[in-house]
Design a protein around this nucleic acid. Sequence first.
DNA 1: TGTACATCAGTGAACGCGCGTTCACTGATGTAC
DNA 2: TGTACATCAGTGAACGCGCGTTCACTGATGTAC
Lengths: 217, 217
Amino acid sequence: MASHTNDPPVATDGREIGERAKATRRKLLDATRVLLTRHGFSDVRLVDITREIGASPATFYQYFTDIDDALLALSNEVTENSGALIELLEAPWAEPADYERAVAFIDAYIAYWADNRAVLRVRNLKAEEGNADFRRARSAAQLPLMQAISTKVENNMAAGRISADLDTQATAAAVLAMLERLTAYRAELSARGTGGAALETTLSRIVFQLVTGHSNV
Amino acid sequence: MASHTNDPPVATDGREIGERAKATRRKLLDATRVLLTRHGFSDVRLVDITREIGASPATFYQYFTDIDDALLALSNEVTENSGALIELLEAPWAEPADYERAVAFIDAYIAYWADNRAVLRVRNLKAEEGNADFRRARSAAQLPLMQAISTKVENNMAAGRISADLDTQATAAAVLAMLERLTAYRAELSARGTGGAALETTLSRIVFQLVTGHSNV
DNA sequence: TGTACATCAGTGAACGCGCGTTCACTGATGTAC
DNA sequence: TGTACATCAGTGAACGCGCGTTCACTGATGTAC
């Protein structure tokens, strides 16, 4: 394990792999993703994955040591694709007019989760169960976001808009926790009459207030 | 499934069970909980559970149809034990001095998660994967809390402390989401220098502000 | 351009293990008189 | 209080299935000349 944290991918025997093999590896990862979305995590078997792409189970072992290894590779990919989110946090949130930036970030965050829900779910489960590799994957994704938000909080605190005895790291963590978890509630809230639009607006307002201290937008 | 949502427990063949059987069922549930905490969810096997209490795997089938059935029973138990949390939300949060109530609630919430982490984790996973029984279990636990918080937000909104164009349900959901998710980050935050005390204080302050509109405690 | 050879990629077929599951049974507990 | 019987609770032993895993192989692709 921990063998797929970087490019380029290598086969399990250590040699580098060509185009054809890369495509097969890709197909295996995509199939894993599909099965993870279609069924529950505990129903995804190694043989199902290879069946899905019409390959022999032996093929799987050319690229991954076991299912966890493939899940970890997916998790790391998902982390790598979070760069766009970080970029949306580069500009400062200071003036009330910066609210639009918060909205853009939150929209992107929700979309990111919608796209990667099944993988993120498993990554977080494994991380919370104590698996070191998945812990690292989760941290790699979250720390940059947390750092960026924490810095914003700090700046706004320095400007006197946020109470100085709040912990900036903890505040940033709270914001991220809220965003992350709420994406799981969306379906249920919708069913109970709180539509996606109301949720997004309220969420943006809350996040902007927590980070900047501006309550009246 | 869905057979263990209410007391008293019955055997899988339908008859009511006596004291001895009740104790065995209890032991099976406790063992499941222990294994869930000790290992990852996907490593918990039916035979492990019975091995843990020195019983035959056949015994398991007297009380549960399969592992999911036992997990669901545990989930429902955990829901039933959340009554204390609701009680902590009965008194109003309106005056700045009510902050202590928020702190008490948040402490209780954190403790509740610490005690039931392994079960709640699986419940949420299954719910998010679309399992109807676990969805129901999760809703049964969350809706009362959400309702109670939503009412508080409404009252404070009526008193003019909270912007009237926020959605009260969405705000309540945001608060709960934040609490729920942050419990998973605690270990990591501690490791990075943001101790439990700082986290709890910041969290309490944020929650109190979101619910009541009081920012200066 | 064509042929020979080397390396890369994929698999068929087999394996053994351990899991979930079943059922006829034995043993434990409760009850009637 | 003691005995006979009924019901409750637990299990030994067996089963078959499907999974993960392996390895010697075949086929596909690349390269040298």
